[in-house]
Design a protein around this nucleic acid. Structure first.
Lengths: 279, 279
DNA sequence: AATTATACATGAGTAAAACTTATTTATAAC
DNA sequence: GTTATAAATAAGTTTTACTCATGTATAATT
């Protein structure tokens, strides 16, 4: 038993704006089921219907419309304030995956700090993708429907291995299998066919984070089928070396999900810098 | 990784109003620890300090004060609207424990429906106590610091048993041991001394809900040490009978936590009726 | 000055939301 | 009559919110 949850009201607000549970779900990166649950729950707790359900559309009741007016106004007041805080902040907050943070972002941040000593960067990692209006979010995923200016990289994949152990354990391949099931898989079979190989030549081991695969390869446990951005730094340092095979391109890459709210000045500086890191 | 959570902002709002994590926690029925976590989390995600911590007080920073202004205004806009919805509603929503709902409220609701055919009552049960400005909440707990007009009953406890099985299993006693640890225990030892008995004469079995204890007694598995309000209905129906011992009084009872917002007309009718049920 | 009490922080573990998947229903579109 | 779409329902999983135990700093009490 909880209070009328703010979470539910947020979901209601989105549903009211779209007149659709599905579109609200899309906006918030949820399932329509979950939206339905939230609204139902609200209605039960308030003892009043908020939407009239027809088969393929929902419309607000009078009560729903009244509430929507309030949530819209109330939440936007709060979000405006949050955004202004972020503008004032000396600190840029970045959300991204732990693999990207560890292999690319954190090592590169030294350079950023040198260029912008007055801007602190705080990195928050997690695999679950969320639409956050305040922070910068760097996502990994299918970039085929993402607008060009939001794309940071289009990833190529190839086999990499520890140069000191060249040839010792070439048949074991570590490969990411992303938790987020909407992602297409790493382009392993495309790579195989491009290099005229078949999958019987390799023993595959998958982890849900590319980072772990790379670490296994560094440890010499086998080679890793990884994206070029993540191993770039390691390749330069001579920790990993690229196999002699042809790299395969993919529709996967890093991108910045579109923001409703504009970046603050500091965030824009960070984003501009970030884009250069991939060139 | 979530969005800046609405939950956290609610907690922040309370903390800002009180200039104290502890008082905010009290208001929201949380622990100070939890408030501390929420605020910390917010600060991390926003990349900006909201409170200046001194040893026994916290004060808002400039940024915190700006945010507090917005949350205060935003949330109150929303809560006003919620309250108006409840006023319009034909349905009174009541939060209470499952024991109280099953043994007293639901059986009595027939009578209420007869008297007020135009008011629907929706009952939501749960043991966790929450401060809800929209719904009516009936709580069970220590009433020694509750104002008289909010108190519904002061409970007396005694042993009850199934009359058909009188004497069959008198040494087994089922007794509630409430989940909510801030509650004082059922006054078992006071009852024992009042009746010049010691605890070696009984085998005690505890459940976290009084309801289960009563059901065991109805099933004839033993007797139950219960509060008079809950067994009242069962006693009248001859399902349970009071033992010959002296009942013991307690500082436990049912009450209506104070509401910041006034009851709606319909809610007031329900509350007035409810109070009569205990006389 | 030593002792006690208070407000908050930290870390680890638990309980309760939130969320998802699988399945079903109703109906609009084809 | 099919197919496709939006939403509802039930059951299960994951994430978040929350608590407990403990520690720290300091104001208040003795």
């Amino acid at each position: 038993m909880t209070n009328v949850s703010m979470q539910a009201l947020k979901v209601f607000d989105a549903a009211a704006r779209h007149n659709s549970f599905k579109l609200a779900a899309d906006e918030l990166n949820l399932t329509a089921t979950n939206v339905s649950h939230h609204i139902k729950n609200l209605e039960t707790r308030l003892g009043i219907e908020l939407f009239i359900r027809k088969t393929r559309e929902v419309t607000l009741t009078k009560a729903g419309a009244d509430l929507a007016k309030a949530t819209s106004s109330g939440f936007s007041t709060i979000e405006r304030a949050l955004h202004q805080l972020v503008e004032q902040s000396k600190c840029v907050v970045v959300h991204t995956t732990s693999s990207f943070a560890a292999q690319m972002l954190i090592p590169a941040l030294r350079d950023f700090a040198k260029l912008n000593p007055d801007i602190d960067v705080s990195v928050i990692t997690g695999e679950h993708l969320v639409h956050d209006n305040q922070a910068i979010t760097i996502r990994f995923g299918d970039i085929s429907h993402i607008e060009t200016h939001q794309i940071l990289s289009i990833e190529q994949f190839n086999l990499y291995l520890n140069p000191n152990l060249d040839g010792i354990n070439p048949s074991t391949v570590f490969m990411p299998k992303w938790k987020n099931q909407s992602l297409s898989e790493a382009p392993w079979s495309a790579w195989l066919s491009q290099n005229q190989m078949n999958d019987k030549q390799h023993e595959l081991i998958t982890y849900d984070q590319e980072l772990y695969c790379i670490q296994e390869a560094i440890a010499g446990a086998g080679c890793v089928f990884a994206s070029h951005s993540l191993v770039n730094m390691l390749e330069q340092n001579g920790v990993l070396t690229c196999s002699a095979h042809q790299p395969v391109s993919s529709s996967l890459g890093y991108y910045l999900p579109s923001q409703e709210v504009r970046y603050s000045q500091q965030q824009q500086i960070f984003v501009d810098w970030l884009k250069k890191q991939f060139i």
